[in-house]
């Protein structure tokens, strides 16, 4: 008896990798109708492919200083996006830069998302003093000037890939916690959760197998929006010279280094700047399309 009931509970909606298939269908529907979604998806795909296959696709070594300095972009020439003040190929450098943006963006949000969702699930599911304590902490985190703290942490612990990820990702814990908790509170009263409690599933099973999959829609939207924001934060840190490592080609750092030559070689700064803009725009468009598809209210995040 109990097994059959819990089977009903579990198969109540079909899932792929824990994501309800109806959400995927909704998204495919939106994708077919919404220009915003298409543009976003194309930009995001190009960006991800460029980042993953940078070593295979780049025409030159991004660190090699041997191509003549300050060559302006010529789309037909050997260096379509020109060269910088050290004579490095900008096209190759921005493709490697995409790797850092993607890795930091995803890494920071995964870090913040993991702890935030965990806090939100526990807080929402157990309520009571656990909820009080966790949410009070989240409240304080919410009003924290995170970029300053990130700048200070990087200043103290030095530059480095992981330091940037932690410094940026910390700020997103509270966003995820807030949203997840809200969703859990509404899902908690649904019949299948009550049924799951009655058939004696463990708290762990109820939280992670029954509750979590039904809170994913706003979390996915939030994830996308925050990846865009994390990439902006990474580019700001890199621009300030507090990013991954000064020698690593990142968009923010390239922009910052090119600033000195703004009058004679504006492309050195403008090209990575435009790439940041287009990529973040693409992710935001994609996130907005997800929001429409999943019918998530705006302002649930922020």
């Amino acid at each position: 008896m109990s097994t059959s009931l819990s089977d009903i509970v579990k198969t109540d909606r079909a899932r792929i990798f824990g994501i309800r298939t109806d959400l995927i269908e909704q998204f495919v529907d939106t994708l077919q109708q919404d220009l915003k979604a298409k543009v976003g998806l194309v930009i995001v795909s190009v960006f991800i492919l460029a980042a993953i296959f940078a070593p295979e696709l780049t025409p030159y070594d991004p660190m090699a200083q041997e191509y003549g300095v300050f060559q302006p972009p010529t789309l037909s020439g050997a260096h379509p996006l020109g060269t910088d003040s050290y004579g490095r190929d900008i096209l190759s450098r921005v493709m490697y830069g995409a790797r850092i943006s993607l890795a930091v963006g995803l890494g920071a949000v995964l870090f913040g998302g993991f702890f935030g969702v965990l806090i939100g699930l526990l807080s929402g599911y157990y309520g009571g003093w656990i909820d009080d304590v966790l949410m009070r902490a989240v409240d304080v985190m919410w009003a924290f000037p995170w970029l300053l703290i990130a700048i200070m942490l990087v200043a103290i612990f030095g530059q480095g890939f992981w330091n940037v990820i932690f410094a940026v990702g910390f700020a997103y814990i509270d966003d995820f916690a807030r949203i997840t908790r809200g969703e859990v509170l509404s899902v908690r009263e649904e019949e299948y959760i009550l049924a799951a409690e009655n058939v004696g599933l463990s708290d762990f099973e109820i939280i992670f197998e029954e509750t979590f999959p039904n809170t994913v829609a706003p979390i996915i939207v939030q994830f996308t929006v925050l990846v865009a924001r994390a990439m902006l934060a990474e580019s700001t840190l890199s621009f300030l010279g507090l990013g991954v490592k000064p020698t690593t080609p990142t968009w923010g750092a390239m922009l910052g280094q090119g600033r000195t030559f703004l009058t004679q070689a504006p492309w050195i700064s403008i090209i990575p700047g435009i790439l940041i803009m287009i990529t973040v725009l693409g992710i935001n468009l994609f996130g907005d399309a997800l929001r429409d598809a999943f019918d998530v209210k705006e302002g649930d995040e922020a």
């Binding site: 700001t236 621009f239 700047g273 940041i276 803009m277 935001n284």
Partner: peptide, 22 residues
């Protein structure tokens, strides 16, 4: 608004310098 939320402030600054100042 989409451009606003997608462009870092320092890049807007650089573009403004290029256009209005330079």
């Amino acid at each position: 608004s989409f451009i606003g939320i997608s462009v870092p402030g320092f890049f807007i600054g650089i573009l403004l310098i290029l256009v209005f100042a330079n």
